[in-house]
């Protein structure tokens, strides 16, 4: 009888009991959602500075430009000292390409015979500029910015840059 009267009083048509049940259920779901979000947040790593992700010195500008003076020169593998990129020559200068295929993360080796990067996993192909020549890759190879600091060229592996296509602003320009 109290139920009937409380229903009548209540415009939303909820009894007190129903209201509490819905309230607790919603509160419970919110709590579970919060716990889930907190767990995901806990699992989300804070990347350390240094090692891969930091700045890598690759040598004096003179040396680098010399070793890549030929436009047909083989890309230089710079995998030592936490470097994980290739230095290649384009018509505008030198570009630092992240070595991972943008498709599914395999290391893309340079293929001398084909004169292009050829991914062993799913066969993506890239030219010297990192632009896609074939295969499933959805965009060109990612790049790192090259700067000159005190006579040495420095690649900042913390600033991995995705791009839609090659353009000359991505390179360290040739001075000659």
């Amino acid at each position: 009888m109290t139920q009937a009267s409380s229903t009548a009083d209540n415009k939303s048509g909820l009894t007190r009991r129903q209201f509490l049940a819905v309230g607790w259920t919603v509160a419970g779901l919110v709590a579970v959602g919060e716990a889930g979000a907190a767990t995901l947040s806990f699992m989300y790593p804070r990347l350390e500075a240094g090692s891969f992700g930091g700045k890598v010195v690759i040598g004096s500008a003179q040396e680098i430009l010399q070793s890549l003076s030929d436009p047909k020169a083989k890309p230089v593998e710079t995998f030592k000292n936490s470097g994980r990129f290739y230095l290649t020559r384009t018509q505008d200068g030198i570009i630092a390409l992240y070595r991972k295929c943008v498709h599914l993360g395999c290391v893309v080796p340079w293929n001398d015979g084909e004169d292009q990067f050829h991914c062993p996993c799913h066969g993506s192909l890239y030219d010297r500029k990192g632009e896609v020549q074939g295969g499933p890759a959805p965009r060109p190879l990612d790049i790192f910015p090259i700067t000159e600091e005190g006579g040495s060229l420095v690649v900042d592996t913390g600033k991995q840059t995705q791009r839609k296509a090659y353009d000359p602003s991505q390179v360290y320009p040739l001075k000659s």
């Binding site: 995998f79 498709h103 599914l104 395999c106 290391v107 893309v108 080796p109 991914c119 062993p120 996993c121 799913h122 499933p136 959805p138």
Partner: peptide, 27 residues
């Protein structure tokens, strides 16, 4: 060896169906 990807690189057999599908559609 994180510097060298073998050719070909394959998933375990029960995920080869997925890898096969990847060749034909948007990932």
């Amino acid at each position: 060896n994180p510097d060298h990807t073998p050719n070909p690189s394959k998933a375990p057999w029960y995920f080869m169906n997925l890898q096969e599908l990847l060749l034909h559609m948007n990932p």
